[in-house]
Computed example of a mutant assay.
Amino acid sequence: MLGLLRTNEVDRGHLLLKEIQSKHDFSPDVVTFTSVISGYCKLGRMEEASYLFNEMFCSKTKPNLITYNVLIDGFGKAGDMESAAAIYDEMLLRSCLPDVVTFSSLIDGYCRKGHVEQGLKLWHEMGIRNLCPNEYTFSILINALCKENKLKEAREFLSQLKWRNIIPQPFMYNPVIDGFCKAGNVDEANLIVTEMEEKQCKPDKLTFTILIIGHCMKGRIAEAISIFHKMLSIGCTPDTITVNSLISHLLKAGMPNEANQIVLIVLEKNLGSGLSSSTKALAPMDIFVAL
């Protein structure tokens, strides 16, 4: 059964479930039902998942926390928050207590629909229930707040990390750094990166790319170049977006020599296979002119 579901053959898994039901000597348990329901939810086939959920009750099989969680997550990702909320209400009615996964799925669903305020209400409900959010819960709300340009609120969520037993990850910081860079406040973005590093959270490729582009857009080209060198010094390999963005801004700023130097560094590190045609046009002749 589980082997079929792992290969996305959920329909065959459902047929096997029916076969088990047809035999009086065997009765599918909550794990069997939940496995097939989860398979349908992952495929976004919520009608089939709901049908099986109802079948559980007909067969007098009691859903467990995992059953409710996969359904809530499935409806949330399908954009059907009315059904997700109904499943949540039903689990409470049946005295099945929600956990951090339940709330994270609900918050994610509401944020996907643009209902961030509802997501924040659920965040506070978690606190009332003494449930600690995990890094995924934080990331969902931080992303959602940044999309609505509520950078101050997103920044406050980052500040809460030091009070939580959570290991900070770059994906939690990057949306906020990006938001401040796009707002032209690169000083605040730099401050957030410093806080990251103080928490032993190393900036990743996306962090550096956001910073480089943000500083270039602000006209702080020298700092962008410095960030690029720092990126290389810690062994973080830039991708073509990073390199092409920096070189493009250098050329627009009338700094062909500096652009040539970046190209030379990239070629020396064998990173040049994905450079744009305009970038490649600088090498190798322009490099030697610059030198």
Rank of each mutant, 00 (worst) to 15 (best):
R6T: 02
D11H: 12
D11G: 03
H14V: 02
L16M: 13
E19Y: 10
E19Q: 14
S22I: 07
S27A: 13
P28G: 01
V30Q: 10
F33P: 01
I37E: 04
I37M: 07
Y40E: 01
L43H: 02
G44H: 08
E48I: 05
N54A: 09
E55P: 02
M56S: 04
K60F: 12
K62S: 11
L65S: 12
I72R: 08
A78T: 07
Y88V: 02
Y88G: 00
V101I: 15
L106K: 07
L106S: 00
I107P: 07
Y110E: 05
E117V: 06
I128N: 03
E135I: 13
T137K: 10
L141Q: 06
N143T: 03
K152Y: 11
F157S: 00
Q160C: 13
N165V: 13
I166R: 05
P168K: 11
P170Q: 08
F171H: 15
P175M: 04
P175D: 02
V176R: 01
V176F: 01
N185D: 15
V186K: 00
E195H: 12
M196K: 06
K202E: 14
P203K: 09
T207K: 07
I210S: 00
I210V: 15
A224I: 00
L232R: 14
I234P: 04
I234S: 11
I241N: 09
L246R: 05
I247P: 05
I247M: 07
H249G: 02
V263S: 03
I265S: 10
K269T: 01
N270M: 12
S273Y: 12
S273T: 08
G274T: 01
S278H: 15
P284L: 10
F288P: 00
F288R: 11
